[in-house]
């Protein structure tokens, strides 16, 4: 027993060393980014590196915000994210309900075909989406950032999985009481699916906020850029001012870090439950 305890402790020490090592690898870039955002030009170029900046003033942030319209980028990002996520959530709920609870001919075939579409990489859709955006005459507008992302097979699949798990007896119970499909969906199913929905919304919001490739292709004017693209452009156009880049990066990721801190439990649960990739 004593020996077992000793072994157990030893193995725990080993596990914690590994975990700490992993944590340092994960946290270090964030640490470097945030401290770097406060350093002076001299401090950031020194070797050996300066770990803690000499002063914590916000000059770098001020310069970065003046050098490029980050406030504009931020608002664009926010509009694109809120717009696409809210419409996408709505269409996802409707589609998941239809594929899970309504009976119509070809339901399984249609759903299987839709699922098969998930295998088409996004990079390929970029071409067709680009043509659509051009022909709809919404190129370089905020609509081009919203409309292509107003439905998602993947999230529909996740939510359908939850709806499938709800016993049909609830549906029939409600039907016998005179409840319409529409009312059943919003009064019974959606409130029950709240944890799944929160996960879907968060994951969708994060991926919208971070999306880079499509905004780069679909927008061209400075005033229509989103944060990730704006940051990239700033790095390219602004030269090698590392401390300003780091300040701009901090501004970009801050909302997501705050969102993550608040909704950590939901995100982790969702990823663990559905095996969802981020």
């Amino acid at each position: 027993m004593e020996k077992f305890k000793a072994n157990f402790k030893l193995s725990m020490v080993f596990v914690y060393i590994l975990l700490i090592f992993g944590a340092i690898i994960m946290i270090f870039p964030f640490f470097w980014m945030i401290t770097g955002a406060f350093k002076t030009t001299l401090e950031i170029n020194l070797f050996p590196p300066v770990w803690i900046p000499s002063s914590f003033n916000l000059d770098n942030f001020k310069y970065a915000l003046q050098a490029a319209p980050f406030a504009r980028y931020f608002i664009n990002s926010l509009i694109a994210m809120v717009g696409s996520v809210s419409v996408c959530t709505f269409t996802t709920i409707l589609a998941a309900f239809a594929f899970s609870k309504l009976k119509f001919p070809g339901r399984e075939v249609i759903f299987t075909l839709l699922l098969a579409l998930m295998m088409v990489p996004f990079e390929m859709l970029v071409i067709t989406n680009y043509q659509t955006v051009i022909s709809w005459k919404i190129y370089d507008t905020v609509w081009a950032l919203i409309i292509p992302f107003t439905s998602s097979i993947f999230y529909t699949y996740i939510l359908k999985g939850f709806f499938d798990s709800v016993s049909d007896s609830l549906y029939y119970s409600a039907r016998i009481d005179g409840c319409s499909n529409w009312k059943y969906l919003w009064r019974v199913l959606v409130p029950m699916a709240k944890p799944s929905l929160v996960t879907i919304i968060l994951l969708n919001a994060i991926s919208r906020w971070n999306s880079f490739l499509w905004p780069m292709i679909a927008t061209i004017n400075v005033s229509n850029r989103t944060l990730p693209f704006g940051l990239y452009a700033f790095v390219n156009e602004g030269g090698a001012k590392t401390e300003l880049m780091l300040a701009a990066s901090t501004i970009t990721v801050l909302p997501m870090i705050i969102l993550f801190l608040f909704a950590r439990k939901n995100i982790v649960n969702g990823v663990a439950r559905g095996g969802i990739k981020g």
Partner: peptide, 16 residues
């Protein structure tokens, strides 16, 4: 079903 005026209790109760 909703026009028949029946009450139905399921085996698994089907409470919300």
């Amino acid at each position: 079903p909703e026009k028949r005026g029946v009450g139905l209790v399921f085996q698994n109760y089907a409470l919300y």
